[in-house]
Nucleic acid binder design. Sequence first.
DNA 1: ATGAAAGCGCTAACAC
DNA 2: GTGTTAGCGCTTTCAT
Lengths: 344, 344
Amino acid sequence: MAKEEIANENRPLTLRDVSMASGVSEMTVSRVLRGRGDVSDATRTKVLEAAKMLGYVPNKIAGALASQRVNLVAVIIPSLSNLVFPEVMTGISEVLDETPLQPVVGVTNYGPEREEAVLYEMLSWRPSGVIIAGLEHTDASRAMLRAAGVPVVEIMDCDGEPVDAMVGISHRRVGREMAKAIVRAGYRRIGFLGTKMPLDHRARKRFEGFTEALAKEGLEVADQEFYQGGSALVKGREMTEAILTRTPDLDFLYYSNDMIGAGGLLYCLENGIEVPGQVGLAGFNGLRLLDGLPKKLATMDACRAEIGREAARLVAAHAGEDSAGAERHVLTPTLEFGATLKRR
Amino acid sequence: MAKEEIANENRPLTLRDVSMASGVSEMTVSRVLRGRGDVSDATRTKVLEAAKMLGYVPNKIAGALASQRVNLVAVIIPSLSNLVFPEVMTGISEVLDETPLQPVVGVTNYGPEREEAVLYEMLSWRPSGVIIAGLEHTDASRAMLRAAGVPVVEIMDCDGEPVDAMVGISHRRVGREMAKAIVRAGYRRIGFLGTKMPLDHRARKRFEGFTEALAKEGLEVADQEFYQGGSALVKGREMTEAILTRTPDLDFLYYSNDMIGAGGLLYCLENGIEVPGQVGLAGFNGLRLLDGLPKKLATMDACRAEIGREAARLVAAHAGEDSAGAERHVLTPTLEFGATLKRR
DNA sequence: ATGAAAGCGCTAACAC
DNA sequence: GTGTTAGCGCTTTCAT
């Protein structure tokens, strides 16, 4: 009944409503609700009951404006459908769950302009920190990140200069290591299959590292194939068929991600191509999702969850400061031979 | 230089800074930046230049408090790793991109208490709408949704009573239709394989619909197997082996999702079990991700992207109102026979 | 077309 | 332990 008396108007409840319902000052109500400062048990109980009865939900907008504090961390990633990014998110959440901080996700679809817009939008909410994928951003984006006055952590990649802190792996190195392992295993006629996306800098760097290391061995990529969109598994099949038809003497196929690698693997198995004897295969990412395939694909782990965790730790550790202290964490992916790459 | 003079202190820029830099009142600066009201071209240019030079990013917290408007839509889902939810998100973004609204994601990990906490947190930012997965929520959550005073759309499911609007499919019906198709195709010894999760209400409803329809045909599930965690593809293999070992005369396996179904399919193919002659298989979801498998798995589409789009449309259409008009949109998934279910 | 004043709902800082 | 006062950075409203 008291409830109806008070909440009859259809406007959101405020601290004032709780204050009136409980007969306690707004300030004390605020203290109780935030668990700050000393409040007598009697008062606390009164307030809590009133708030619960009314169904009061605090207004964080007003709170944030008054306190100049926002417990949000902006997380900016290229895509959610890439599988890799949900795993990064999981790592981030894991760590932030132990703190008062909350992640808020923005998705750029691999568009630099879109990234700029998303970043602008998120910064306008004055988050306590920013975690952003990649080191390549527009000048305007970099300027915003620098001027944000909060910890900024660029993740996934470490081939380049971050604005503030950085947590990632070297994709150039991933490409190089894989090339070396392939050559060491005795393969010589090597094909590359990847995405067409010119904006996927990390895939590009892997390719560059790969060709560079091959060059050192006096080799070059014998043939290559690129795709865009569609089901990765299907594309992996199609590209594999195409490249092997065009260049039948290839003895190794390096895929820029595990999904297309899996498609290629299925194609080979179905067409009686012996793996890894006749043709060796390798991908990138270490997706657990694919664990149940007929053969385990050679790959290199992208350290996704760990990158998320470490980035979140950095932001949490530097929350309230104006930077993440320019820390640089370089993780080292391990090569998994699986059953598609000879162990030399 | 003017920049340094003004931005020397290390505090975020405000409208006032832009006002002083441009010699225009705060109010007019605000109008320019929001594109509201009549402002002369000369003034507009002056303001825009000043803002750009300073690198001013508006403070949405203050803006939201003053205008009592927040262009955020809370989207609450159980998980990001489920593959299904990123697709829903894609549908939502697609539609909201055409509006001033922005999605903000909260993840509950299938925990009702966690959902309650996430919802409370998001509502405290006073979003313009809420899109939330499922119809099952704690009493407190339902109370919050009812009291939110904004459009609320419950998605994915339509077997139950929504708080406000609802966009989804009937999982009971999905289970029933699949059972009917299986029986019609002549299968009689039917096994069920699914998640253990007692909190995945939609999986539970599919199972209920399935057994109910079988019962109408005088049949019951001959054996069942449940799993929890781990790689779904691997689990699919393991469970399939287990159930076929225990009950070798099964002639059909119904999986509660496509990933474990795919694992089962791979197991059967490798072990010389003829599909769909000796054993038929079916899953649920219609994941395009799996398109390149050796055989296409029978499944029913969950209409993920379309659900996202429709929910976003509803929220957008009712933005500013205090409900989404209790609309109910029931989508009808179609049965895809693939190559693992005989076409009767 | 532009400006001045008031206040959104909360919290910091300071009284008592 | 509790209350009072004064903003936080914007936008609304009303004046000019």
